[in-house]
Structure formats: structure tokens, C-alpha cells
């Protein structure tokens, strides 16, 4: 898995380095900066809702400490977003609207971690922890259900910084 990802990342970096990300047409909700090669706004990769919806996604039906009962989260896979941005590095710093941030090792992107943009089918507003929330696959790997991953589960995400 890791190798595939690295290979993908490497491919994104070298072979497809000329590939330029299309410019966002709607409101930018996510900015990926730092070690990224596919840029569209300055030296960052900016994504609007439509761009994110086009990426490989997954639906996760999970319980979280911040929601009541089982909740369906849906959104692009973290690794798909990183690949789209041509990101390569070791850690990600995920920042929220309120400037809360968490450092995430890049291996967390190898599993089915998603950047949820829909909750129970609805777009997430800022009042409902939107516009974007990092959701770990607690449904696939129950071992992740602990404080370590809770603190990494950033909501109201606005940007991701990739560090080498």
C-alpha cells in the first residue's frame, strides 16, 4: 500500500509534473500548500467543492465522539487529494478555520482516510463542523478509535500543509 502510494506520489512528482491543476471556479474551500507540484493558485493547490467531488471518494458510516449515533460521512480519500495536488512529504499539517491544527504522518493517508464534505448526504456548514472534516476509517479499523486519532480528526479544515 505504502509502495503504491509512494509510486503514485513519485509519478505525480516527476512524470506528470507538467500536469497543471485546473483553476477553481467556485469558492475555494481547501488549500494544499508546501511540497506540492500541481499548483493552480500561486504555489498552492486550491480546491473548490466541485473539484473535490470529482476525486475518488468513499462513504464511511461511523460513530464519532462529536456526533450522536451512526453518521454517514462522504468525501474524497485523503490520498486522492494529495495525489491531485502532487504532494510528497512526510507529515501533513492540517489547519482549521479557528486555527486549530494537527500534525498527521503521511502514512495516515495510506488507509481509507477521507476528507468528508458531506454528512448524511448534506453539505456540511461551518456550524456543522464543515466545510470539511478529516474522518478516519473507524468502521474498517476499530483500533483507530482512540484519543490519538480523535486529536488528528480536524474539522472545519481550511488548509493542508505538506512538509518534506
Amino acid at each position: 500500500m505504502k509502495r503504491i502510494l509512494i509510486a503514485l506520489l513519485a509519478a505525480a512528482m516527476s512524470g506528470v509534473s507538467a500536469f497543471a491543476l485546473e483553476a477553481p471556479t467556485g469558492l475555494v474551500i481547501l488549500t494544499v500548500k508546501g511540497a506540492v507540484t500541481n499548483t493552480n493558485v500561486g504555489d498552492t493547490a486550491a480546491f473548490d467543492f466541485a473539484m473535490l467531488e470529482k476525486l475518488e471518494s468513499r462513504q464511511a458510516v461511523v460513530e464519532t465522539p462529536w456526533t450522536t449515533g451512526k453518521t454517514t460521512f462522504e468525501g474524497p480519500l485523503l490520498r486522492a487529494v494529495l495525489q491531485e495536488a502532487g504532494a510528497s512529504g512526510k507529515t501533513l499539517t492540517v489547519r482549521a478555520l479557528n486555527d486549530y491544527s494537527a500534525e498527521i504522518p503521511i502514512v495516515d493517508a495510506e488507509i481509507a482516510t477521507i476528507l468528508a464534505i458531506r454528512q448524511d448526504g448534506q453539505r456540511m456548514s461551518v456550524r456543522e463542523k464543515g466545510p470539511m472534516m478529516l474522518v478516519y476509517p473507524f468502521d474498517l479499523e476499530p483500533g483507530l478509535y482512540n484519543e490519538k486519532y480523535f486529536s488528528r480528526s480536524v474539522w472545519q479544515i481550511k488548509e493542508i500543509e505538506v512538509a518534506k
Binding site: N98, S125, V126, R127, E128, K129, W155, Q156
Partner: peptide
Amino acid sequence: YDILYSRVDI
């Protein structure tokens, strides 16, 4: 305000 709102929710 939106953020506060979400916080109260949490």
C-alpha cells in the same frame, strides 16, 4: 459566530 455555534453543538 458559525464556529461558536458548532462549538456549542459539540
